[in-house]
Amino acid sequence: YIGSKISLISKAEIRYEGILYTIDTENSTVALAKVRSFGTEDRPTDRPIPPRDEVFEYIIFRGSDIKDLTVCE
């Protein structure tokens, strides 16, 4: 799965898409590269977040912050 395009939804209901870079089982983290944030879209939340235009080089997510993770390709 390393190198695959991943769609990830955080506990804050924010969806991110990026390339799976590393999975650290010891620290329970997932790192994505070339990440875009799509905001909360239409998911119900107390704090709606708009999508962002910039592409983040890397984002490291803690396993406890991840609600859903899907391989896109």
Rank of each mutant, 00 (worst) to 15 (best):
P50W: 08
E17K: 00
V71A: 12
D46Y: 06
R62M: 04
Y58H: 11
R52W: 08
K67A: 09
Y21D: 15
D24F: 01
T22S: 12
E54G: 11
I19G: 01
T70R: 10
D53C: 08
R36Q: 07
S7W: 15
N27Q: 14
D24Q: 01
R47C: 11
I14E: 06
S64R: 12
R52Q: 14
I14S: 07
D24K: 00
I14L: 07
K67R: 09
V30L: 14
P48Y: 15
I66S: 00
P48R: 11
I60M: 15
E13K: 03
E73R: 05
T70A: 06
D42F: 13
S37E: 12
E73V: 13
G18T: 00
A31V: 09
T25W: 04
I66T: 00
V71C: 10
Y58T: 14
Y21F: 07
I23L: 11
F38L: 05
E57I: 00
E17V: 11
I6T: 04
R15A: 02
T29W: 08
A33Q: 15
A12L: 10
L69A: 07
D24L: 02
F61S: 04
E26A: 06
D24P: 02
D65K: 00
Y58N: 15
K67N: 00
D42G: 08
F61D: 02
V30F: 14
P48T: 07
D65R: 03
G3W: 02
D53I: 15
V30S: 03
C72M: 07
E54K: 15
Y16I: 00
I59S: 09
K34W: 00
R43Y: 15
I59V: 09
E17I: 08
R47T: 11
S10C: 10
F56A: 09
D46C: 13
D68L: 11
P51M: 04
F61H: 01
F38S: 02
T40W: 01
D65L: 02
L32Q: 00
F38T: 00
P44T: 09
R43S: 02
R52D: 14
E57L: 03
R47I: 09
L20V: 13
R62H: 05
G63T: 14
R43K: 05
S64A: 13
P50Q: 09
I19M: 07
V55D: 06
T29G: 10
R47E: 13
T25C: 06
S4G: 03
S10N: 11
K11Q: 08
K34D: 15
K67S: 05
R62D: 15
T22Q: 13
E41H: 04
F38V: 01
G18N: 02
E41L: 02
Y16R: 00
P44V: 15
C72A: 13
I23V: 11
L8N: 05
R52Y: 12
A33W: 07
T29C: 11
P44W: 12
P50S: 10
G39Q: 00
I23P: 03
D68V: 08
P51I: 11
D46F: 09
R43V: 01
G39S: 05
E13G: 13
P48E: 04
T70K: 14
G63N: 15
C72P: 06
A31L: 12
E17R: 04
D65T: 04
I19F: 12
D68C: 12
T22H: 06
Y16L: 02
E26S: 08
I66Y: 09
E57C: 04
V71M: 13
T40A: 01
V55A: 09
F61I: 07
I66V: 08
V71I: 13
Y58A: 12
K11N: 05
A31T: 15
T22M: 06
E57W: 01
L20W: 02
E13V: 01
I66G: 02
I49S: 13
T70F: 03
F38Q: 05
R52N: 13
K67L: 09
K11L: 12
K34R: 09
I9S: 02
D24Y: 07
A31K: 11
D65C: 05
Y58P: 02
R43H: 06
Y58Q: 15
V55Q: 11
P44N: 10
E26H: 10
G39L: 06
Y21K: 13
I23W: 15
I6N: 02
A31I: 12
V71E: 10
E26F: 05
S7Q: 07
R62I: 04
Y58G: 11
V55S: 07
Y16T: 08
K11I: 12
V35A: 10
D42Q: 12
G39M: 04
V71G: 09
N27S: 14
T40P: 03
D53V: 10
R47N: 04
E54D: 06
I66D: 12
R62T: 09
F61T: 03
E13H: 11
S28G: 11
E57R: 08
G63Q: 15
D65Q: 13
S4D: 14
V55Y: 06
P44L: 10
K67E: 03
G63S: 14
E41N: 03
